[in-house]
């Protein structure tokens, strides 16, 4: 018989749907009994494994750079967007200064003022910069340009060696400024009558 029995199919489908939706109310259900991933060895992932555990510096590669070379790399690869001496250019604002501005308004956010751990800049430049050719800088170039930007922020001496050890040991001003999510931080009431009118940010700052 070629024609399916729609009555039976609908009934079976409905009960199946019910079972599945009950199951999915709490969970996706049991994992499949077989998988399709192919084993790969960690060394074969070396070119992909580029993230750095920035508080410890774990993942920073061997090699080092200098502030002087960083200035050259910056002029060639970064300055067109970030401006001379990283003080802001046609595309982006300054990457220099702002240390000590965190309790002021506005806060001036730069790698020097904002980053809690110095290796953050290495991780970011290596993976994402320059915008038009990410992952094109050598390890030595990344260390150098990172050193140059921190030097412009007064955090690294002009003759410093920039490497895994010095970056990890560099104490950043904003290190202790972070608190982990502690929301909900408001307790609004569901007032229905005789309520306060909807307030503004200015109202909060007034009181």
């Amino acid at each position: 018989m070629r024609l399916p029995n729609f009555g039976i199919m609908v009934a079976a489908g409905a009960s199946l749907l019910l079972a599945v939706s009950t199951l999915h109310a709490e969970t996706f259900g049991d994992p499949p009994t077989s998988g399709f991933g192919k084993p790969i060895a960690e060394p074969d992932l070396a070119l992909w494994d580029i993230d750095i555990q920035t508080p410890t510096g774990k993942g920073l590669p061997a090699g080092e750079g200098t502030v002087a070379h960083g200035a050259e790399v910056f002029a060639e690869r970064c300055e067109a967007c970030h401006g001379e001496k990283a003080e802001g250019g046609p595309m982006y604002g300054t990457m220099v200064g702002g240390i000590g501005s965190m309790d002021k308004n506005p806060r001036v956010l730069t790698p020097g003022s904002m980053y809690p751990y110095a290796p953050i800049l290495f991780d970011y430049v290596r993976r994402a910069m320059p915008l038009d050719a990410p992952q094109s800088l050598t390890t030595e170039e990344v260390y150098s340009v990172v050193g140059y930007i921190y030097h412009l922020n007064g955090l690294v001496e002009a003759d410093a060696k920039v490497n895994a050890k010095t970056l990890t040991e560099l104490k950043m001003h904003n290190r202790d400024a972070f608190i982990v999510d502690d929301r909900p931080d408001t307790k609004a009431e569901r007032c229905m009558t005789d309520c306060q009118p909807i307030g503004t940010v200015a109202d909060a700052q007034k009181k």
């Binding site: 750095i52 806060r107 956010l109 904002m114 970011y124 400024a177 972070f178 608190i179 982990v180 929301r183």
Partner: peptide, 30 residues
């Protein structure tokens, strides 16, 4: 074993809090 604390977890996608502080890993959209 611990978050990388990369740029997107510190200098971006963090929220200014009183006293010069920053709230991080505030990922739920309330």
């Amino acid at each position: 074993d611990q978050p990388d604390q990369i740029r997107g977890e510190t200098a971006r996608y963090s929220d200014p809090m009183p006293g010069g502080k920053w709230r991080q890993f505030s990922m739920v959209m309330e």
